[in-house]
Design a binder for these strands. Sequence first.
DNA 1: GATACTATTTTGATTCATCAAAGTAATCAT
DNA 2: ATGATTACTTTGATGAATCAAAATAGTATC
Lengths: 229, 229
Amino acid sequence: MSTFDKPTNQNVPTPTVENYLKQILMVTLEENGSRVAMGKVATELAVTPGTATSMVKNMERDGWLKYYPRQGVSLTRKGRKVAMNMLRRHRLLETFLVETLGFDWSEIHIEAEELEHAISEKVLEKLDEFLGRPRYDPHGHPIPSKRGTIQRPSSQTLQNCDTGVTVRVESILDQESDFLKFAREKELLPGKAVSVIRSEKLADVITLKIEGNEPFSMGFRSAEKILVV
Amino acid sequence: MSTFDKPTNQNVPTPTVENYLKQILMVTLEENGSRVAMGKVATELAVTPGTATSMVKNMERDGWLKYYPRQGVSLTRKGRKVAMNMLRRHRLLETFLVETLGFDWSEIHIEAEELEHAISEKVLEKLDEFLGRPRYDPHGHPIPSKRGTIQRPSSQTLQNCDTGVTVRVESILDQESDFLKFAREKELLPGKAVSVIRSEKLADVITLKIEGNEPFSMGFRSAEKILVV
DNA sequence: GATACTATTTTGATTCATCAAAGTAATCAT
DNA sequence: ATGATTACTTTGATGAATCAAAATAGTATC
């Protein structure tokens, strides 16, 4: 053994590493803190906390992220680049599944989750071209560019809209199939204009109206998942 | 420990198992012997012989195939079903890559190899529908049906065609990018009519002519890879 | 049939990703 | 601040897939 501690240098991420990176990026984008707590990592990836810790250590060894024990992780430039690319893959695939194959937008998340690891850069490029280089996926999320930049989404949610105002839905922050079905039923879709009929902070409920539909209500917990401008 | 030796029951194949199954099926279809030698398994999957042996033992444990030590393996009904499905995935994906995304047929094999493990039954079904339920892939290979049946391909190759006859190309048995490029250049494609100008057994060479092109020659080794009717 | 060569199997080790359970640090509540 | 709760880390083990190298069986050659 020399001074060097094994050159186990991984410059090519395994699918698992790709998943960790993408998930960490997504949390980073949602919350605005640059460190993601280990607990969050573990639940997002549906593994035990111990697994998350040990994975993250190896990922630090390979230069994907910085690990601050008992505080959390943050991506390095190298890690962020890969993570952005995963997000791009994911969102382009979701677009393809809805636009081309006619899937319902509530059922595509898991499918894309699998495919994003298998699709090569070459196929991705052709797919992008075929789809006409879309800039938003079916949920309204911006698709990162090839160079790894992403449009900052609105930070306003339906939750903090006051009574009387009218806003436009930008995107839906939930991947849950049931919630997406509900949103579709109510026509609470990206691009739609929504009037806030009543917002009751105390009762934790908001009542909405969309052109041509019956008014309906939803709790703040749900309203928080709808980004608007 | 009871009498039972671990219920490590795998009824869901891992991607690796899927690969072994598909590859074994393909060899079974090409040669007409029902046992595939371990050496063949190892080279097809590009692993060391030892690895092949140990994988195959686990696969027998899980009921995917029968293993006859020092003789070879043959698929069980269960294994064949999965293998057929893999072949279906592979060939549908190749069709998609060529027909929809505009790839050259010489560069799609590796791409499909990756995607076939990631695509779900649901997406496969939609894709099949989108493509208009094709029955042949771009190389002319029959696509197995959803129920796992496949059309027996012609067993005649260009190699054993006599001077003077004219035949129709059915499919190309090689996945090698360079060979496929050559075939495309000469328009030696599925569906095309080919006249055998001269077949010289001793010199091991065959001279061909395709409507509207210059005649050209190829060795028997290559001619063997072209199925005709 | 003894020897040589080839095909296959065995053995022992390794890497990746994971879990359960035990240990430790940090934070929260009274 | 002391004790309880929550968050995180460590430890030891496991299964899947692999390799290299040694052992063994089978076949071919003279």
